[in-house]
Write a protein that binds this DNA or RNA. Structure first.
Lengths: 339, 339
DNA sequence: TTGAAAGCGCTAACAC
DNA sequence: GTGTTAGCGCTTTCAA
């Protein structure tokens, strides 16, 4: 790669100082009383030789990179890619770049990624964490490093967080199932089940069942392993629906991955929704409007979540405050045809 | 943010030089004959005070950022978010970060993004360009700046490119429609229609029609505006299918956005696929396995595309060569139930 | 075995 | 109006 022209190239060629050139190029010429003539000369020459400031050098000098990191489990998941897009847009407006990294729910990988982002001097990070313990983030807190947790809360730490009320919205969805006459409702959860969002949703499911006085059964709460969603879901649904099995009349899918696997299985097994089984999914994705029947789902306010996350992060970057913010938004149940 | 410990902090505290510390921390101690004892001392202390190298400073010094840019029209589009994931993974293995930016097909925005990536000293970029002209990329070529074009080819420029044979695969898909007895096949294209992938697909559609000796009609080739896909698709399908209208027996959707809009419209208008209309989509997305019927679609080898793109880019970065590479892959038609 | 010094490209404090 | 100098944190000769 051809080496670029630098400030001093311009300064030397024009017989002025780097300082002057820097001022002109950063629109600080007037306030420093640089003559219009000199300004013109500099500007013209800079354009001629196609000068591009080295933002890394500026960053080193000023201690900023104008880069934010986003850490999620999988950017190919539409839930996160939509978020990424919202965040990218909001950050773009304040001239920040976004680096996205996927962790595959691997806590070690996540730790490594965050360490790297710190070392690269990212100005802040937004993370949907898979960590079991909050130690790493406590360390960030101690270092006054700006970050905000989204989607998944961490225990035992007072940090910025933006997310939704998972328990209540799940409870509401399952109650909807109960109100429409369903009594044997299976829930498909996912590992790692220790992450707050999943845990809260499971809790919401159990609460709804209990409060309705329905029979609870461990057989109806199934945990699917993150790695092999498709196979396991199919196996479990087969087990649940075969004659002589536990017998169910509805399924609640804990996230969009699980829901997609359920829908594929319904197709494979010729299960008719909502006749054979009612179905509700957490997370609304485009595909749910395309299926027959369309899927009733809980829709998270992604745009709002991202707006809050970015705003909080920017505040944190500009004037760090000790007090941390926690924003809990309410998702809505979109009733379609699967119940 | 608390200022971090630097090399000289360690050096001062230990009464050694920055050079030595740098060597130890970069595993160059042995080849420079630093005593094991000193090495231990440095390592231990660095860990104690939680030293993190400032990669921006290192980058400035060494002229690299270990960052690659990915420029696409919309990262929320599953086609691109899947690509992003593949690229992220491949880059991660060689210790590079990925910055993703969406252009919304806005040529000016794209120019700005690329300029910024250059200024931030990204080591290279991968771009699916919306440009009409190749001037900006010619400039990059002149500067020996490493980049590879994906998905969309640019005219009049000899640059690295990785993509698929859009014309042939479209032709093949439309022939499939013809072979299965369809005679009045509408194609839904999208603006900007000047991008190579779209242009080639339109060409493939027209070729297939002509070679089969079918009647061509301008009314059957519809261009949907990028901004308002949903409304326009619905309007056009309504027009096309109403009694007294042109009458069609199949639809070819030129990308996944258009296809999704078509499917929603089929649902709204109660159009039965494949009884009323056969349907094929370009780009295979997860949702196409969830619909009833499942959608026959052209599947691009995303993983392969990304592997090539990253490999070429890495070669370019490590030892720039004048000769540029062009890789054209073949997608496959996945026959499902919509034809 | 180790260290001093230069310099990557930029900005900011302080002269003149 | 303009220039000098210092320094961000790091690596890399070259010298001792």
């Amino acid at each position: 790669m051809k080496s670029n022209v630098s400030l001093s190239d311009i300064a030397n060629a024009l017989g002025v100082s780097k300082t002057l050139v820097s001022m002109v190029l950063n629109n600080k010429a007037d306030e420093n009383g640089i003559s219009k003539k000199t300004q013109k000369r500099v500007l013209k020459f800079a354009k001629e030789i196609n000068y591009k400031p080295n933002l890394m050098a500026r960053g080193l000098r000023m201690g900023v990179t104008n880069t934010i990191g986003l850490v999620v489990s999988d950017i190919a998941n539409p839930f996160y890619s939509k978020m990424a897009r919202f965040i990218e847009d909001k950050l773009g407006k304040v001239n920040y770049h976004l680096v996205i990294c996927s962790t595959d729910e691997d806590t070690e990988k996540e730790k490594k990624i965050i360490r790297l982002m710190r070392e690269k001097q990212f100005d802040g990070i937004i993370v949907s964490s898979s960590q079991k313990k909050s130690d790493d983030f406590k360390q960030l807190l101690r270092e006054d490093y700006p970050f905000v947790l989204i989607d998944r809360k961490l225990k035992g730490i007072k940090a910025n967080f933006v997310g939704i009320d998972n328990r209540e919205s799940t409870q509401h969805a399952v109650e909807h199932l109960i109100k429409t006459g369903h009594k044997r409702i299976a829930a498909f959860a996912v590992s790692p089940a220790y992450v707050s969002s999943i845990k809260e949703r499971i809790c919401g499911y159990q609460l709804a069942i209990q409060e309705a006085g329905l029979a609870t059964s461990e057989k109806l709460l199934i945990e699917i392993h993150f790695d092999q969603v498709k196979q396991e879901v199919k196996k479990e649904i087969t087990k649940l629906t075969k004659s002589g099995g536990p017998g169910i009349d509805a399924i609640f899918a804990i996230n969009n991955n699980i829901a997609v696997a359920c829908l594929e299985t319904f197709h494979d097994l010729n299960i008719n929704i909502p006749k054979d089984l009612a179905f509700i999914a957490f997370d609304d994705i485009d595909a749910f409007k395309l299926t027959t029947p369309q899927v009733t789902a809980i829709d998270q306010p992604l745009d709002e979540i991202c707006t809050h996350a970015v705003n909080i992060l920017m505040q944190e970057i500009n004037k760090p405050r000790k007090a941390k913010k926690e924003v809990i938004l309410k998702p809505v149940l979109i009733e379609r045809e699967s119940v």
